[in-house]
């Protein structure tokens, strides 16, 4: 058995709201192998962001454990790069300073000039060339998110935790960013692959990018099923989408997602 990079076992997370305990995640277990790309999908409010905030080290689980490289997770860590669901740039720094600041925290060995060089390079990669001197408030929401993605990618961490990073981004740029993410994930060689946990609500995106998809069920968030993506890489999106296998696989995921909704409609509590 190969050791997993990230091991989540029997994780339960509670929120306290006005004195009442609310069980957001219940008994969630799965592993993420070294160099594996894992997507997490599930209905809105099922606890995807909650799960990531535990992996980020920002929120403490009530029960269960998370280990990274075999050691129990304790707070935030330099080996993890994060893209939040919300915009997370520092408003008083220009776009390129934001990225350079991130690089500085993750890669101490680089000089100031090198940091800014890498920042500019990544600004170009996410299509923000020429916007480096702008402040976040001068950019659109999608552009800010692209800058935040550039920051996380430029930090070149072993692990990437991304929470619906492309959901606010237009279709054309989304494809560009998906390809960029895949090429950075692959790195120079299979041994150097990054480990990615990627939250999305876009089924096609999950299939195109991942090795493995974790489907969550809501109220409380539990793992419904873990599905391995059966398609070889590199995946040609235009070709793949036309195949029968793809259609079947997609339908299977959809039914796993809707099964959850259907159960709830069938029950007393109607949520939609």
């Amino acid at each position: 058995m190969t050791a997993n990079k990230i091991e989540i076992s029997h994780l339960s997370v509670n929120y306290t709201e006005r004195g009442r305990q609310f069980n957001a995640l219940h008994d969630v277990s799965f592993g993420v192998g070294t160099g594996e790309f894992v997507s997490v999908i599930g209905a809105s409010g099922c606890g995807k962001s909650t799960l990531l905030s535990v992996l980020e080290g920002l929120y403490q689980a009530a029960e269960g454990s998370v280990t990274i490289n075999g050691t129990p997770l304790h707070g935030t860590g330099r080996e993890r790069g994060v893209v939040f669901q919300h915009y997370s740039l520092f408003p008083w720094m220009t776009t390129r300073s934001n990225i350079a600041f991130g690089i500085k925290q993750a890669r101490h060995e680089l000089s100031r000039r090198e940091r800014y060089q890498i920042a500019d390079e990544f600004l170009g990669k996410v299509g923000l060339e020429g916007f480096g001197k702008k402040y976040p408030s001068q950019l659109s929401g999608g552009m800010q998110q692209r800058a935040a993605i550039a920051r996380a990618l430029a930090m070149n961490t072993d692990i990437l935790l991304m929470d619906e990073p492309f959901s606010a981004i237009d279709a054309k740029n989304r494809v560009i960013l998906q390809e960029l993410l895949l090429s950075l994930w692959e790195g120079d060689s299979p041994e150097h692959r990054k480990t990615v946990v990627f939250v999305t609500h876009d089924i096609d995106e999950a299939i195109l990018l991942s090795d493995k998809i974790v489907v969550l069920t809501a109220h409380p968030g539990t793992v419904n099923e873990i599905v391995r993506v059966p398609f070889d890489r590199p995946r040609n999106r235009a070709e793949l989408i036309k195949t029968d296998e793809y259609g079947k696989f997609r339908n299977r995921l959809l039914s796993l997602l809707y099964q959850d909704v259907a159960n709830r409609i069938g029950g007393e509590e109607v949520v939609i």
């Binding site: 980020e56 919300h86 520092f90 991130g102 993750a106």
Partner: peptide, 12 residues
């Protein structure tokens, strides 16, 4: 809090 969280995950 979002600003503090981003700084925290950057390990500032």
């Amino acid at each position: 809090q979002r600003i503090i969280d981003s700084a925290k995950v950057l390990n500032v």
